[in-house]
Design a protein around this nucleic acid. Structure first.
Length: 490
RNA sequence: CGGGGUGUAGCGCAGUUGGUUAGCGCACCACGUUCGGGACGUGGAAGUCGGUGGUUCGAGUCCACUCACCCCGACCA
């Protein structure tokens, strides 16, 4: 089997694609720009869903489901929204096919043209706000805190597995509030939840911040983002939350009576993360041997591989492994005993490394003799023996260590590739190296556009947690406390 | 939509100025030897050469049209 290519040998995107395919996560579909998520990739998505869903529910949100099809006219109700999404919508114009008159195949039945075309949702603000209109009359109906797990379609020109596909899976939260303050607070709360999920569960360090006007979600007044750094130094937007103001309430005429008996427009937020997070995990942690999964998200924590030659050995080893397997299982650790004799141990080692399983246990005749097992940890590739009696506490400790270690490793990488710069020259000379460039900024939309045209980089965000420090804007020279992160992005 | 490229077995590819029965590596199947880091040997199965039409005694190869995919741009949660 060909080895996984490294970023140094070829370009990073090829390395990434190779990894996604070899680790059996996903492949390109025969349908343009779409992706087939294979069982192993989907298992990772399910872990993401479970963890996030609990976080949403713990903060008072509930799940619901809205239609896939959105009447075209809904889109034109919010001017910025339609402008932002018009170019990437798949549109349904007919509802029936018929046999071709010339007997060759099937054609669209022109008599089945839809009165009004339907758009396949690229995001659900419009259809959801059209529904909320009927759900909200009084301040007593607020806040409305709803999340939906769904698929969306965006007809992108260029697609990449997990990072940008024509159809992708995501969750989208859509909340309605009585006051501006409450909506702003909700948008901030959700970006905090995303950041904590990214860091604690996915072991991906992120920078929380606000998007500039240019980069904002179409229809939002504020967009909060979490930005992660991939191993090639490029930025990846890993999640966003939006303060939508009263834009959608006005567009869909959603008003409520407040306690004073006055009619007011509702305040809104929306927020989402997608299967792109799987891409983020891959590009943050993987090495040349394959995936490295954070234990908190790995579908499997431990895999046991038996090693034997003779039938006698096999019998003994199977017993020993089954014992270990049953014991580990009782401790809320997901474990697999790979007792297939259709593959050799070496083959299995390579396979589970490629898949990123955090801990591998190998058991051979020597181990039974010494009442021990061989442990291999995926993140450092270290191998060592531990006594059979210490097995459970050691595994628990190791899982925690791995989770922590890969986070620290990613954080160190990000710190080593973050540069504080004081001039445009610094930026132009270094941007091709990759990484985050922190700069004072008080430029206009036009300055930002120009920056993007000249360097291909964008302002990723205005960080929330950046220490305040006065300095000169790198394009205008104006003294400002505001600092931004500039980087090339996926 | 512009510029470039590629379509040959599940995957990756070779196939000369047109010439008989279309090859190679990996994967797959059988048997044997192996089994503590992706084993080896022998044998085997697997292809409407992207599609349509044309030139020709003869087309994977030449021509036209067409479809699909990839890369670079434009576009972009």
């Amino acid at each position: 089997m060909a080895k996984v290519l490294t970023p140094k040998e070829v370009d990073y995107s090829q390395w990434y694609n190779d990894l996604v395919l070899k680790a059996d996560l996903a492949e390109n579909s025969s349908v343009r720009g779409c992706m087939v998520i294979k069982p192993y990739g989907y298992a990772i998505w399910e872990k993401i869903q479970q963890t996030l869903d609990k976080m949403f529910k713990d903060t008072g949100h509930v799940n619901a489901y809205f239609p896939l099809f959105i009447p075209k006219s809904f889109f034109s109700k919010e001017a910025n929204h339609v402008e932002g999404f018009a170019k990437e919508c798949a549109v349904i114009t007919h509802y029936r096919l018929k046999n071709s008159p010339d007997g060759k195949g099937i054609v669209i039945d022109e008599n089945a043209k839809l009165e009004e075309e339907l758009v396949i949702r690229p995001t659900s603000e419009t259809i959801i706000w059209n529904t909320y209109k009927n759900w909200i009359q009084s301040y007593r109906d607020l806040p409305l805190l709803i999340n939906q797990w769904a698929n969306v379609v965006r007809w992108e020109m260029r697609t990449r597995l997990f990072l940008r596909t024509a159809e992708f899976l995501w969750q989208e939260g859509h909340t309605a509030h009585a006051t501006k303050e409450e909506a702003l607070e909700e948008a901030m709360k959700m970006i905090d939840i995303y950041a904590s999920f990214a860091e604690n569960t996915l072991a991906i360090p992120v920078i929380k911040g606000a998007k500039t006007e240019n980069e904002r979600f179409a229809g939002a007044l504020e967009t909060n983002t979490i930005e992660a750094m991939m191993q090639d130094g490029k930025a990846l937007q890993a999640g966003t939350s939006h303060f939508l103001g009263q834009n959608f309430a006005k567009a869909f005429d959603v008003k409520f009576l407040n306690q004073k008996g006055e009619l007011e427009y509702v305040w809104a937020t929306s927020w989402g993360v997608s299967t792109r997070l799987i891409g983020a995990i891959i590009m943050t942690h993987s090495d040349n041997n394959g995936l490295v999964l954070p234990p908190a998200i790995s579908p499997l924590h431990v895999v046991i591989v038996p090693i034997y030659k003779s039938v006698d050995e096999k019998f003994e080893i199977m017993n020993y492994c089954n014992n270990i397997f049953n014991e580990i299982k009782q401790h809320n650790i997901t474990v697999k005993f790979d007792d297939r004799d259709t593959h050799k141990p070496g083959w299995k080692f390579a396979e589970y490394e490629l898949k990123g399983i955090p801990i591998r246990i190998a058991v051979g005749p020597k181990d039974i003799e010494n009442n021990q097992v061989e442990i291999a940890r995926r993140d450092t590739l270290e191998k060592f023996f531990i006594s059979r009696t210490e097995l459970i506490p050691k595994i628990k400790q190791l899982l925690a260590d791995i989770q922590n270690n890969i986070y620290q490793k990613a954080l160190t990488f990000r710190n080593n590739n973050t540069y504080i710069i004081d001039s445009l020259k610094d930026l132009y000379e270094n941007i091709d190296k990759g990484g985050f460039f922190v700069a004072h900024w008080e430029g206009t939309k036009e300055h930002e556009k120009q920056l993007n045209e000249q360097t291909k980089a964008t302002i990723r965000c205005i960080p929330f947690d950046e220490e305040e420090k006065l300095g000169k804007c790198i394009v205008t020279g104006i003294l400002t406390k505001k600092r931004v992160i500039i980087a090339k992005a996926y």
